[in-house]
Design a protein around this nucleic acid. Structure first.
Lengths: 82, 82
DNA sequence: TCAAATGTGGGTAATTATACCCACATTATT
DNA sequence: AATAATGTGGGTATAATTACCCACATTTGA
């Protein structure tokens, strides 16, 4: 059985979750970027699942959104053991 | 008001959480390392809060522990806005 | 209609994690 | 006591993120 690239799927789900909070708070990429000390285009890339960010960046995002970091991981996924 | 380095505190709490699950499952650093495709000494460094790991590494750890990644972030912390 | 804001995505130097070593002290286990 | 397992931590080349650019298409709204 072929298992779709776990990593990319994980990044995609994380990005989706980030986008959920950003749009919920009606923030533009640039507005959130100001709160996070990140570049707006980088946040966009994270939301698209194209960035494998670090713990410190997760913290920046959570702070910018004023949420607990764990909220960003609150999505469904099946942990496959290969 | 001086705010203690948010980032290091966050890494420390994450590492603590990782250690909680590892010891709960009675795994040595080396045993967990085998499940995660990581080096045992690197896991040790993560638990000590000395590593700013990436999303993909978080996924590896969660898979190795057979838990959802969000479990690793289930700890108390105050999100400070500087 | 026109300007401002936003979304989109490509590119780069510098920084940093990764993926490995290795060695040795400490703690079980027999 | 001797051996095995584990904890501990330092080091390094490579690969990747970060922290920024820039440009332009699209959307918003005055």
């Amino acid at each position: 059985m072929v298992i779709l690239d776990d990593k990319n799927e994980f990044l995609r789900l994380f990005g989706e979750r980030l986008g959920h909070f950003r749009t919920e708070q009606k923030l533009s990429f640039r507005e959130l970027a100001l709160n996070c000390n990140l570049d707006h285009s980088d946040i966009r890339k994270i939301e698209k699942g194209k960035r494998n960010i670090q713990l410190s960046t997760i913290l920046e995002l959570a702070k910018g959104l004023d949420i607990h970091p764990k909220e960003l991981f609150d999505f469904e996924m099946n942990i496959e053991k290969e």
